[in-house]
């Protein structure tokens, strides 16, 4: 599959790797399909791990993270495989 076949996703950045993995654990436990990805430059100066979710699951993911006090520090929509 070529990167030229990419489709939209929502990617979230977090203040720490710990926070990203805590968010991943929460979202997985609650049935959200989440994939750790290298943090893209477009979400700021992060250089660690970001979380990618399907666009249609993003509103629920954001609500769940907010309810848990685990809000991401950055959000971007980007194309990926």
């Amino acid at each position: 599959m070529s990167l030229r076949e990419a489709r939209p996703f929502v990617v979230y950045g977090f203040a720490t790797t710990h926070a990203a993995l805590a968010a991943e654990s929460l979202l997985k436990d609650l049935g959200i399909a989440v994939v750790p990805v290298p943090a893209p430059k477009s979400i700021g100066s992060l250089c660690g791990i970001a979380l990618r979710v399907e666009p249609e699951e993003a509103p629920r993911a954001e609500q769940l993270l907010s309810n848990a006090g685990m809000e991401p520090t950055a959000r971007v929509e980007m194309d990926d495989l």
Partner: peptide, 18 residues
């Protein structure tokens, strides 16, 4: 280095545990 955040900032990140 902490890997996760604010690599371009000159100062140590304040978020825990990093």
């Amino acid at each position: 280095g902490t890997g996760g955040s604010n690599s371009e900032e000159p100062g140590q990140p304040t978020a825990r545990p990093e």
